[in-house]
């Protein structure tokens, strides 16, 4: 999906600092915020936050 970090942060209503921390793995978002991000990106929780298979 073609969306910038800034646009995603604005769409879910969090700061870019928070979105950046989530991307970097420095902050674990609540399930509520995860769902909001999934909804904006049109992805499932598993696709975005699920464990990566080796």
């Amino acid at each position: 999906m073609d969306i910038t970090q800034k646009e995603l942060a604005e769409a879910v209503g969090v700061s870019r600092q928070t979105m950046n921390a989530i991307e970097q793995g420095d902050y674990n978002p609540t399930i509520k915020l995860c769902r909001a991000i999934c909804k904006v990106l049109g992805k499932s929780l598993d696709e975005l936050f699920g464990e990566e298979e080796n």
Binding site: A11, V12, G13, V14, S15, Q17, T18, A21, Y27, P29, T30, K32, L33, A36, K39, V40
Partner: peptide, 15 residues
């Protein structure tokens, strides 16, 4: 879908 609600200006990480 806006995650933030109420009149709190901070998001959950900032909070």
């Amino acid at each position: 879908m806006k995650y933030k609600k109420s009149n709190n200006m901070l998001d959950e990480m900032q909070d």
